[in-house]
Simulated scan of single mutants.
Amino acid sequence: MVNGCKVIVLLLLWLGTSAGDKYALSANAAEHQEHTAHRSVGLEEVVLVIQSQRNSYHARRGVQRKMEILHQAAELGQVSPLPQNSPASAEKTQSLCSHKTNDIKNVTVPLHGLYLSFCLFFYFIFFFFKIALYIWEEGNGPELTAVAEFCTEPRDNCATTFTTYLPDCGDSVSKNNLFVAVKTCQKFHSERVPVVKATWEKDAGFLEYYSDVTDASIPTISLGVPNTERGHCGKTFAILRRFLSKAVPKTDWLLIVDDDTLMSLPRLRQLLRCYDPKEAVILGERYGYRLVQNGYSYITGGGGMVLSRVAVSRLVSSGCSCYRDDAPDDMVLGRCFTSLGVPITHSPLFHQARPDDYSETLISLQQAISFHKHWNMDPVAVYKQWLQDEHPRDEL
């Protein structure tokens, strides 16, 4: 119940990574429902929430998704769009978006009939946990029900389908507009660096290896920061300062990775075309730290951290810095960017772990950009299977 009204909630995740993500209100699915034991539900009883992020690309995609849904609803003859400012519908969706979820912000007003709203879910995993608690209602609520018509793969009678192939935002960003920084240390020069050279280094326009020692055979650059067993904050902030200096070519984008990260740079450059380098952007796989206690989100370093030049400049000029050289660099960056009001942008195509650590069904529906760690696997074989494109995959 939301403000005394019976509402069915359909969450439409729009993380913005893929123009191939397909979400549809299917007329076939509606006809299929008529054959069930339950009565058909009119769209006036449905709240549709499009999940988006604080970024101009995601905002555009959210509006596009909204218009697609409204068009389908109009074809069903169940919606008559009215001006955006509809207090009654706004009250209903605001209740949903804010109930016990203070980190969620409602940013547009839904339309009459089809309560279509946009909520910025900065911590999307945490959000689902909170929604489950809201429905569960300390054991007094209904059980969660699996619905076959909510599909992960297209098939007959799907109300929704989902893929995360790469978006088509135009030609890929030039390889000469992306600077790649690989963090390494002496003990991994002979073990991990050769894997990078055998796999994805060839796709980089500008790439440097940063180590605790100078090794001309690779070559590596010492930034004057001693190696640390845990956390590499001092090294990462030295990379950020170097990126803004005249010591390296000037590019719009910076990618920072570990020496055991496997990357697809062509896919990354295609994804980056969707983002505006004039905005402060930090992109990758988003994690959260103490979110229920006014914590912050951050891009996990193992999957790769992508930053626009604008974001790096804002961070360095802010004076926000490491509290120790061995502090976790990705978390410190997340704390700093959060304090600066820069959104942490999530993409499910970056991965902190190995392919074996994920559902095969999940990653088979993706065009992954990265994986992390070499434990108990052949990293070159993993790269060839999951990241190397002989023939680019078309969007669905």
Rank of each mutant, 00 (worst) to 15 (best):
H351P: 04
S347I: 07
L265K: 11
L307E: 13
V292S: 12
T251M: 07
R242I: 07
P328S: 13
L340T: 09
Y296N: 01
D260Q: 08
S359N: 03
I363H: 11
G303T: 05
L271E: 14
M263D: 14
E360Q: 12
H372E: 01
V281Y: 05
L362H: 15
V248M: 11
Y289M: 15
E360W: 08
Q367Y: 04
K246I: 11
L291P: 01
Y323S: 10
L349F: 02
Y289G: 07
A238W: 05
F243L: 02
L240Y: 15
L272M: 05
I256T: 12
F337H: 12
P328I: 08
R242Y: 13
P355Q: 11
Q352W: 06
I369E: 08
R324Q: 15
V312W: 09
P277C: 13
K278N: 09
Q293T: 00
T338N: 09
I369N: 00
R324S: 15
K246S: 15
Y296P: 02
T236E: 14
A280N: 14
Y275W: 14
E285N: 03
Q367N: 12
D330L: 06
F350P: 03
G288P: 01
T236H: 06
R241V: 13
V306E: 05
C322L: 02
E285R: 00
S245D: 13
G288H: 10
S364E: 05
Y298W: 13
P328E: 07
S321W: 10
G341F: 05
S364P: 00
D330C: 04
L283S: 10
A327M: 12
Y298E: 11
V248T: 14
G341P: 06
R273A: 14
P348C: 04
G304N: 07
P355I: 02
N294V: 01
S308N: 05
D326S: 13
F243S: 02
I256P: 00
S318Y: 00
S297L: 08
Y323P: 00
T261N: 02
L283F: 08
E360Y: 07
Y289A: 14
